[in-house]
Design a binder for these strands. Structure first.
Lengths: 121, 121
DNA sequence: TGGGATACCTGTAACCGTGAGGCATGGAGG
DNA sequence: CCTCCATGCCTCACGGTTACAGGTATCCCA
């Protein structure tokens, strides 16, 4: 969970971010979510079930998601929904992602060396 | 090194990417590089020496970087430079970063659900 | 004399994601 | 009828990367 680290958790917290974002758009069950990630990233990203399911369990136990079991044609589905608390987490997480992505992209653009920002010390 | 994984190596390969990019702009020594990362990301990212030095060693042994020892006022510096091969790696890595970042940002924008791309199967 | 900045290094631990499994149901095809 | 594949859930072991806390040595300034 990265309790106060020097860097935000976004150099590997991408799956969690995507889960929150996609589930906020629409409640889904795990298997569905795995495929939704593939779809919505245009086949660029693909996280296996072995990555997603444990994450869903953790997010639920944190109170970020709620789970509801469903029976559909003899098959069971566990549908997840983002809680109010989860929406807050998503907002923070998305903001941090943009912050980090902007930083990296900035460096990649390269032209802008050593910019000074007057606000800090 | 993520030899053909389902996902590109960019959900955690950021330090390597920044090292390559910054060293391509200008050769630097380790200690300097650590601070350059802080600077050039506007204090958003900070990787400790314990992260950077081992990476430099690995990149050197891969042939991505070359090291040259220098004596400056009784202190030793190891200046790193990107090889031709390294420039190739940087280009690929940067492209992959943009690819991934675009995917995540796309999902975050959210409005665009389930877009179909006619090119693929 | 002490401390802080410079400058290098290593090792341990934690974390995350991968990939390969295991289980069960339902439907399609031979 | 039997088999295979897609669905749908799950767990575990492994590997790679990063974090953090060390350790060494020099130099400069107070």
């Amino acid at each position: 969970m990265a309790n106060r680290r020097t860097n935000p958790d976004f150099l590997n917290g991408v799956p969690e971010l995507l889960i929150l974002q996609l589930l906020e758009q629409r409640p889904m069950y795990g298997y569905e979510l795995v495929q939704a990630i593939v779809r919505s990233t245009g086949e660029r990203l693909e996280f296996g079930e072995g990555c997603i399911y444990p994450l869903l369990h953790r997010l639920e136990s944190e109170g970020t998601l709620t789970a509801r079991r469903q029976q559909v044609g003899g098959r069971e589905r566990v549908v997840y929904r983002v809680t109010r608390k989860g929406k807050g987490k998503l907002a923070e997480a998305a903001a941090r992602w943009r912050h980090v992505a902007a930083a990296v992209t900035m460096v990649l653009q390269g032209g802008i060396h050593e910019q000074r920002q007057p606000g800090i010390a």
